[in-house]
């Protein structure tokens, strides 16, 4: 992911305190670039969903909404692909330990859908070993 050889038309690197309002402003900024790139409504939605769930995870679950902890964010975008890297300052988690929310046993459980939605809506996703760094790419499909 994030190959040096790839030509990106837009990029952003920033870090910010654990505040969903700041995160939502950042999502708006990224989505504006996605729109400018002429991505389909369906692809836009997929990027928006993955960003929303990833930043909620980083801020609320990773950093425990502690404003002293920061989120480190990188985005690379071109007409065919978007790359996102999100790092929180929490102790991490094991994404494979989260029960499958589509399992009939867990279908009515109120939590655990965020990671599943990220995996479903993007093209490639990976966490680092400790689980506090998420990278994903979404290819333009439509």
């Amino acid at each position: 992911m994030d190959s040096d050889a790839r030509l990106w038309s837009w990029s952003k690197d920033c870090s910010f305190p654990s505040d969903m309002k700041i995160a939502h402003d950042l999502i708006e900024e990224v989505m504006e670039q996605v729109k400018l790139g002429g991505w389909s409504n369906k692809d836009e939605f997929a990027v928006n969903m993955a960003l929303e769930e990833a930043l909620v995870n980083a801020i609320q679950h990773g950093n425990g909404s502690d404003p002293a902890k920061r989120v480190h964010f990188s985005c690379r975008l071109n007409s065919q692909r978007i790359y996102i890297r999100i790092e929180d300052e929490g102790s991490g988690f094991d994404p494979n330990a989260i029960p499958d929310p589509t399992d009939p046993e867990h279908l009515l459980v109120t939590s655990g859908r965020g990671v599943f939605l990220i995996k479903s809506f993007v093209s490639r996703v990976k966490w680092n070993e400790s689980g506090n760094v998420l990278e994903f790419e979404k290819d333009r499909e439509h």
Partner: peptide, 16 residues
């Protein structure tokens, strides 16, 4: 909306 419906389908909440 169709896009949101896809989230329902993916999570199988369309069966709930």
């Amino acid at each position: 909306d169709d896009n949101i419906m896809e989230a329902f389908r993916i999570t199988r909440l369309d069966n709930v």
